[in-house]
Nucleic acid binder design. Structure first.
Length: 895
DNA sequence: CAGTGAGCGAGCTTCCGCTTGACTT
């Protein structure tokens, strides 16, 4: 029977909506985007691979035309959708109403290609309630192609940014690194904050902490107050100092310890009078319902969940129908949800807590696309946490969301905040004022249900009460105690996952669906690491950020994304043109240099300079350098540490690398070594360390040993670890190479560990052996037996194929799968093709193997001599010719 | 930044945004 096919983005949404729409409709999901630019060479179609822009999959010379592919794991799903469409008489594209959703709708249309007799409609809704869905089905619109263009612009710009700038980092900093519009700015935020911390100079300041007695009859009778001013000049507090440790405000008196102590002494006999009592009404509005970022922040503060844990717990709640969609930038509640919340407030707290009018929360997020509701309990009436039957993290997160939603429809908290100033004269004639502030809450309102936590420990939570006595102006008060108190300013706090995400949102960088993964990216790349909950930048991030700031200032600027959003809005509104904008970004225009130009001009970037950071002043002569094996210190040629180097522990936060710390590291450059004891024969100290080639043991020669005496070393066997290694093991390792014996001609055979693993050596003839343990145990007979065998030429060749697939349709040669140095590959005897990411030996068919081989063949014979100059002539003459051609062509393109 | 001996298929890394998968006992 014919039906109408509705396609939404999320399977859980499809289920819900299917229930609302009834039997005439079949509701399916796209499961997000269904097509995208190929993300790696393996997925790039052969026909564009050899184009100069093939790596980008965007034809930058012809209108920035993108080449989309359906990812392998989506193919089956597309087939399913096509099948459903076959029996449909109408297609409703009901993806989210935002830029990405509009693009998904267009991709669906372009990929499913409905027949002319199947009308296509675009259906949009912002809340998943029966009424909203039915209305949406009755009021479809057309696809907004300008919005699709805006999304394409965003997609292409991100591709060009990421895939052009990342290779610059591979060349100049380290292979495998990445740069992108979002991650690079996120990293920069963390680096900039650390640099502020490094520049930070602490300020010490003092004040007086007083305890005052309001006299009997007052409740409370005793109350605290702090020194506020001396001779009408305000006493400096922490916020009055800048990061340089200097007072940043005028008209402040900076008290030292001596000042504070002498003033306290002079106040010993002072009596005080109330100078002023200022009372203001205190009102506090409830917080808006959760959106993705605020949920992540509160789950972090209240439940200690990381952003990724929060999202996956929320995902499960969503899939099981407990909450609405969790990736949203909207704080809007549907009418039904508002009613449900108000009902719940009445039931739980009484009618007094229900405001007359429902509360409406406008979005605070600048580039909000508001395709969804706020995150709230699902349904038209809310289940209390106890009614859900949930447990563990799901229960706790649901409870948080429920409380927040309910509280958002409660009355304001009301009360009074009071400031009391007490004045008195010191023995030396100075006039002093103490100040005390209190807060009383007369009606808690929403605070009974939910109080937001704060990241800033100096801020009071909204529900904290401090009661003060009801004093009147002129009333006399005595001091119970006046104590000098010392304080120090604190450096700006490091970002946590939650505060970094908050910062990114405020700067319009990233989207709800990506906040958690942005953190994942910068952690995975090694740009930042976590120390407790704090995000600490690695030195690598300093190098990368420096390169980007110096050479891609526009792209790495904090405003880049916000400006891009404005442009995209204009494209979506038909006021600007996609190609003009992309061309400006990529090729430049007027005095704006394009990305392409910047990338091409990078030959002169000095990688060494980029990776060098001065520690302390020039005179100290200390540099930190970011090396392939991590950060290390190096002395200036003309400085006190000339020629010296020292490892810097990977987990030493950059702001803790003081000059003193650097000197300490120079003094003990060995870094972390594990003391194993004294060698029973030589009496030398034996230690285990981590080195360039992994963990190893070595012995410490006496300081006065001649320089050419090298200490013996030995890599740990794979079966050993630095945690468990014993002196006994170490002694064995140091005994290598071991003399196994002599052959019939009197040539010595030794056993040792090398770059390619354990092996035997007889003169210049070496043979691999199969276990490291055998280095210690192999006998002369066994060794002679190995040498009696002819030498194997190459490990790969010696191994039997993993699988035989039959004959290749092109070459007619048998195709086999083998395991080699670079992983598994297929070969027909002439060409070898490495298996791609998604291939497995088990599932590999001859068809797929032939595809890989054809792909490989299309790129021509292996180019052996191309790189390091021809050492040996390649076996095949024909191969040599085309190799040379290929190589020249490539060079020409690069320059 | 410890120090080592052969000869072996080179080819790939990377962006941001949408959304959930998961071969088995």
């Amino acid at each position: 029977m014919a039906h109408k096919l509705v396609i939404v983005e999320s399977p859980a949404k499809a289920r819900t909506i299917g229930g609302y729409l009834g039997r005439d409709y079949v509701v399916e999901s796209s499961i997000g985007h269904i097509r995208d630019l190929p993300n790696s060479a393996a997925d790039t179609p052969t026909k564009i691979k050899d184009q100069p822009w093939g790596r980008l999959a965007v034809d930058v010379d012809h209108g920035f035309e993108p080449y989309y592919v359906v990812p392998r794991d989506k193919k089956a799903h597309i087939a399913k959708l096509k099948k459903l469409l076959k029996d449909a008489d109408e297609l409703y594209l009901a993806t989210d109403e935002d830029r990405e959703g509009e693009a998904i709708a267009w991709h669906l249309l372009d990929e499913l290609k409905p027949g002319k007799d199947v009308p296509v409609k675009r259906m949009v809704f912002h809340e998943i309630t029966k009424q909203a869905i039915l209305e949406a089905a009755d009021n479809p619109r057309e696809l907004a192609m300008d919005l699709v263009e805006a999304q394409e612009t965003r997609r292409i710009l991100d591709r060009l940014y990421g895939y052009e700038v990342s290779p610059v980092l591979w060349k100049k900093v380290m292979s495998g690194l990445s740069a992108g519009r979002v991650q690079s700015v996120a990293t920069r935020l963390v680096v900039d904050r650390e640099q502020e911390r490094m520049k930070f100079r602490v300020a010490s300041y003092w004040d007086l902490d007083g305890t005052f007695d309001a006299g009997s009859g007052h409740d409370p009778r005793i109350f605290p107050a702090k020194l506020y001013s001396v001779d009408d000049v305000r006493v400096a507090r922490g916020s009055d100092f800048g990061n340089d440790g200097e007072l940043s405000k005028r008209d402040r008196v900076h008290l030292t310890r001596a000042d504070a102590e002498s003033l306290a002494g002079a106040l010993a006999d002072t009596t005080y009078a109330v100078r002023s009592v200022e009372s203001k009404p205190y009102t506090r509005k409830p917080y808006a319902p959760f959106r993705t970022t605020t949920l992540q922040q509160e789950a972090s503060r209240k439940l200690g969940m990381s952003s990724s844990v929060t999202m996956s717990v929320a995902q499960r709640l969503y899939e099981n129908g407990f909450i609405t969609y969790m990736r949203t930038d909207s704080t809007t509640l549907s009418g039904g949800a508002v009613q449900a919340a108000r009902t719940q407030v009445r039931e739980l707290y009484g009618a007094d807590y229900v405001p007359d009018q429902p509360r409406v929360y406008a979005s605070k997020v600048k580039n909000a696309q508001e395709a969804h509701e706020a995150i709230r309990p699902a349904g038209e009436s809310f289940r209390t946490p106890a009614q859900t039957g949930l447990s563990g993290d799901q229960f706790r997160l649901y409870e948080l969301i429920w409380m927040r939603t309910v509280a958002s429809q409660m009355k304001d908290a009301r009360g009074e905040s009071v400031t009391i100033r007490l004045g008195g004269a010191a023995a030396d004639g100075r006039d002093v004022v103490f100040s005390s502030s209190g807060r009383t809450i007369t009606f808690h309102g929403f605070l009974r249900a939910y109080v937001e936590d704060t990241d800033d420990t100096s801020k009071r939570r909204d529900d904290v009460e401090t009661r003060l006595p009801a004093l009147a102006e002129g009333e006399a008060v005595s001091a119970a105690s006046v104590t000098p108190e010392g304080h120090e300013t604190k450096p700006p706090a490091r970002y946590t996952e939650a505060t970094l995400i908050k910062e990114l949102e405020e700067r319009e960088i990233g989207r709800p669906s990506t906040y958690a993964s942005i953190i994942g990216t910068i952690l995975n790349r090694g740009y930042v690491y976590k120390k407790g909950t704090a995000l600490v930048p690695a030195w690598l991030a300093f190098s990368v950020t420096r390169l980007l700031v110096e050479h891609f200032p526009r792209q790495i600027s904090y405003e880049f994304t916000a400006r891009m959003e404005d442009v995209l809005d204009d494209i979506a509104g038909g006021r600007r043109d996609r190609n003009t904008e992309l061309a400006e970004f990529y090729f430049g225009s007027g005095d704006v240099e394009g990305l392409k130009t910047l990338v091409n001009e990078l030959g002169d970037i000095d990688a060494r300079e980029l990776a060098t950071f001065r520690v302390g002043d020039r005179e100290e002569g200390i540099n930190l350098r970011v090396g392939r094996y991590g950060p290390y210190l190096e002395g200036d040629e003309d400085g006190p540490f000339a020629g010296k180097r020292a490892n810097v522990p990977d987990d030493l936060p950059p702001d803790e690398l003081s000059v003193a710390k650097a000197r300490e590291l120079f003094a003990n450059p060995a870094g972390e070594e594990i003391e194993l004891g004294q060698h029973p024969e030589t009496g030398l100290r034996v230690v285990a360390k981590n080195g360039r080639y992994g963990p190893y043991v070595t012995e410490q020669l006496p300081e006065d040993a001649p320089k050419k005496d090298r200490p013996r070393t030995g890599s740990l066997f794979k079966s050993m670890s630095l945690d468990t290694i014993t002196l006994e093991d170490a002694v064995k390792l140091l005994s290598l190479p071991r003399v196994v014996g002599e052959d019939a001609d009197g040539v010595e055979i030794t056993a040792q560990n090398g770059r390619y693993g354990p092996y035997l050596k007889k003169g210049t003839d070496s043979r691999s052996i199969d276990s490291e343990e055998k280095l210690l145990s192999i006998t002369l007979d066994e060794a002679l037996a190995i040498y009696a065998q002819p030498k194997q030429r190459g490990r790969a060749a010696a191994q039997a194929p993993l699988k035989e697939l039959g004959n290749d349709p092109v070459s007619g040669q048998p195709v086999v799968v083998k395991s080699g140095r670079f992983g598994e590959y297929v070969t027909d005897g002439e060409y070898n093709a490495t298996l791609r990411k998604d291939d497995s030996v088990e599932d590999l068919t001859l068809e797929r193997a032939a595809e890989l081989l054809a792909d490989r063949r299309a790129r021509g014979p292996a180019k052996k001599a191309a790189k390091k100059g021809a050492k040996k002539a390649p076996a095949k003459k024909t191969a040599k010719k085309s190799t040379a051609k290929k190589a020249t062509k490539k060079v020409a393109k690069k320059s």
